[in-house]
Simulated scan of single mutants.
Amino acid sequence: MALRILGAPQRYVQGPGAIDTLAEEVERLGGGPVAIVIDPVACELLGERIARALPDARLLAFGGECTGAEIEARAAETGEARLILGIGGGKAIDTAKGAAILRNLPVGIVPTIASNDSPTSHIAVVYTADHAVEGVRHMRVNPSLVLVDTAVIASAPRRFLAAGIGDAMSKPYELAGALAGGGLNFFGGTPTELTKAIVGRAREILLADGEAAMAAREPDAAFERVVEASILLSGLAFESGGLSIAHSMVRGFSVMPQLARLLHGEMVALGTLTQLAAGQGSAEEIAELASFFRRINLPVSFAAFGLSEEADFRRMAEVSLTAPYAGNYMRRLGPDDLVEAMRSLDRM
């Protein structure tokens, strides 16, 4: 019998103005030289505040895609750093994780958008130069710090928050798929009871507060709950629970030019509907989830992107089934099953 395993970041801090505690949090981790992988948008938005908080930190400019070459280049620039910080969107964050892996250093994460649940995880998703998923790399432990300034998150375009909700909404269905398929989580164990509880609570929050959070002009109670559900609860859920078809589909979607520029969470929303349509969900459940996704401007069909050719659907299906968690499902699926599931969403 496999061991029950749950992994989590060492420290999670969330709220308006959290970025101004960065020096204190770095000191809590032992201080010392810091290297920061930061994307251009985050640098423009937060550069002065970061410079005041950590005047001796070395800023490393993120090049735009989390490729193996980008990770190696940033790792080579870290100098004598004892801590690497990743500040910005998901790909800058994952580049910081990749550099930390190469340098065997702890990492702290400061997301500037809530578009996915990667900040809390020990996983970095690596892409090719043309934006297709290449694979994943694993840190030995989860980030030492995840610091989420919700005032910064609230200032970002709402498309990013919607994507984060889409990513998080997959987790109850993917946990069910992993449990049904006997799959292990990302730590090689089975989900704990806490993980199951986290998944349920995240879903409750997203359905109850998701639309209010999307409409909020500044952080309020609903916004704080949705950000926590999208980053912390969802991150714990996927790593310590397991993934299934919804995230497998991202691998197939990313090779299609029509879909490759979608945000990760937007792809996952389509993948979740595909997972349900492959047999896990009823027509009513699929319609209800699709309606929720529409209300927060997440994609619900392939026709909207001009995809209609059988060869395109088959390519997406075949590539998706190469994902390591594609077998985490209630039954074994083949390309025909996924093609039919995807096409059924357009028929809706």
Rank of each mutant, 00 (worst) to 15 (best):
G242I: 10
S244M: 11
S244F: 02
H247R: 05
M249H: 05
M249Y: 06
V250N: 14
V250Q: 10
V250L: 07
R251K: 15
R251A: 15
R251I: 15
F253N: 05
F253G: 13
S254F: 15
V255A: 14
V255E: 15
P257K: 15
P257F: 12
Q258R: 15
L259I: 13
L259S: 02
L259Y: 14
A260M: 13
R261W: 12
R261M: 13
L262S: 14
L262W: 15
L262G: 14
L262A: 14
L262I: 14
L262P: 15
H264W: 10
H264Q: 13
H264G: 09
A269I: 12
A269V: 09
A269P: 02
L270W: 07
L270C: 10
L270T: 12
L270M: 11
G271D: 05
T272I: 11
T272N: 09
L273S: 02
T274W: 08
L276G: 05
A277R: 12
A277P: 01
A278N: 02
A278C: 04
A278S: 13
A278M: 01
G279N: 06
Q280I: 00
Q280K: 03
Q280F: 03
G281A: 03
S282V: 00
S282N: 08
A283M: 02
A283K: 03
E285V: 00
E285T: 00
E285G: 06
I286S: 04
I286Y: 00
I286H: 01
I286G: 04
I286T: 07
A287E: 08
A287V: 00
E288D: 08
E288H: 03
L289R: 09
L289G: 00
L289V: 05
A290K: 02
S291F: 01
F292G: 02
F292I: 07
F292A: 06
F292E: 03
F293R: 01
F293L: 08
F293A: 07
F293E: 09
F293K: 02
R294N: 02
R294D: 04
I296V: 07
I296W: 06
I296D: 01
N297K: 15
N297E: 14
V300E: 03
V300D: 03
F302R: 00
F302L: 06
A303L: 10
A303M: 03
A304V: 09
A304Q: 11
G306V: 06
L307N: 09
L307V: 15
S308F: 14
S308W: 13
E309P: 00
E309F: 08
E310I: 12
A311L: 08
D312K: 08
F313K: 05
F313C: 06
R314P: 07
R315C: 08
M316R: 14
M316G: 11
A317Y: 05
A317K: 07
E318P: 08
V319D: 14
V319Y: 09
S320Y: 07
S320D: 07
L321N: 08
T322M: 15
T322L: 14
A323H: 13
A323Q: 08
A323R: 11
P324E: 13
P324I: 12
P324N: 12
Y325S: 12
A326Q: 04
G327K: 13
G327S: 07
N328F: 09
Y329V: 01
Y329K: 01
Y329R: 00
M330T: 12
M330D: 07
M330H: 12
R331D: 01
R331G: 01
L333N: 04
P335G: 09
L338Y: 03
V339G: 04
V339Y: 04
V339M: 06
V339T: 08
E340A: 15
A341S: 05
M342S: 07
